[in-house]
Write a protein that binds this DNA or RNA. Structure first.
Lengths: 222, 222
DNA sequence: AGGTGATTTAAACGACTGTTTATGTCGAAG
DNA sequence: CTTCGACATAAACAGTCGTTTAAATCACCT
């Protein structure tokens, strides 16, 4: 082995991750990635085959990483245990989940996941189906499970919309970051901001679902 | 004048708007724009100076268009009249605003505004400050005004977060469109979907703000 | 008719980018 | 020492894209 084994491969992957997140697939240039990794322009093609394959490897890597962080920090108890949990515990579960999500999206050491996903939504690639099926659907299913136990009277379709509402509130600070920062008159989100937002989103959403659960099947006047 | 005056300029602007929205600034090629407009490749540079200038013109045009639609369809009464409005009227005002916004974002004949803004957030250009200052800030200020009259006990900072929550819920269906559509198992949003979402977001948010207003200044346990 | 200024056109330029090729380097095995 | 395979490097290739250039076209005025 040379002085550093497959080290250049790792350096390439890291550099590619940063640049893809910063400037997108088309914006990131192989030459910049190679330079940042201290490697030759041909190295990327040698190790990954092509720029597209390298991009998919980056997505796969980040995908697995975030998936691990989410299940590790906010894993769910089994369905049976969930049914016996007191209301306060269910709320705490939602809070933990929101905090983790917002930490990943806008936390002080937020990774590149949010930006990569945002770009994937703007220009879906062949990676999108995998992301939705293997990552978003399970996450949403777990949230839906907790909400169903929290508000048993809520119809399933309404629960889905509530999940969307909670994720939407959180994602807003990621997708609209430049605008929100300008609005707040800041350069970066302050420390503790993710926690602050999580608290707000939780209370706001609890109130929203309480209201929806209370008014039952009544329809709005047109 | 030729057979169609400055018609090519208009056709170029229209074609550019569609292509910039569909594939972004870097993704849209001058040659494609020219072809769609039935013009020569040099025409764009002749009429607009450069690709970047053309992009800014597109943003400006859409910016003005949406601004007009919003104020026309969901304009606000004066501050004094607002204070005398019954609660149901204020709610109706919010509903109209949400419906208009969601119509623009995901309605059946949704324009390109949502996608252009999404791309602007992913890769902010020199147009971003204008968009924030002249478009988003006024819109948010108006929403904040209504909310303040609806829930007078809510602190200003809390009201701001509520505005973010309402916009976040709505924007979610635009920024996450590919994922949501996959989740719903559809190719496009069904007719009346924008209205449906607006109804949900309104009720959800009213509940959220009721709860926040009710619990006053109490802080969550850590 | 002829000139004039504004547009349109075809063609070429020049820069950039992903990829390939051909060669070089280096450690380990024979 | 030679050979071999994995990796690294420099150079070139081929395609794309924004922009420019110079000629052509057209409407309009005197």
């Amino acid at each position: 082995m040379s002085k550093q084994d497959g080290d250049t491969r790792k350096r390439l992957l890291r550099a590619a991750t940063e640049l893809f997140a910063a400037t997108g697939f088309h914006g990131a240039k192989i030459r910049d990635i190679a330079e940042r990794a201290g490697a030759n322009v041909a190295a990327a093609n040698y190790h990954f085959g092509s720029k597209a394959a390298l991009y998919l490897d980056v997505l796969r890597s980040q995908f697995g990483d975030i998936r691990g962080r989410l299940t590790a920090r906010a894993g769910l108890p089994s369905e049976e245990r969930l049914a016996r949990l007191p209301r306060s515990e269910l709320v705490a579960l939602m809070h933990a989940r929101l905090t983790t999500m917002l930490d990943i999206l806008i936390g002080p050491q937020a990774g590149v996941w949010g930006r990569l996903m945002q770009r994937e939504m703007a220009d879906p690639s062949e990676a999108l189906p995998h992301i939705v099926e293997e990552f978003m659907k399970p996450q949403m299913a777990e949230m839906r499970l907790v909400l169903t136990h929290l508000f048993p009277t809520l119809p399933a379709a309404e629960v889905d919309r509530c999940v969307f509402s909670m994720i939407g509130q959180s994602l807003f600070y990621q997708t609209m970051r430049p605008a929100v920062l300008r609005f707040l008159g800041r350069e970066e989100y302050p420390r503790g901001f993710a926690r602050q937002v999580a608290d707000h989103v939780l209370e706001f959403s609890l109130g929203g679902m309480e209201r929806l659960a209370a008014q039952g099947g009544s329809r709005r006047a047109s």
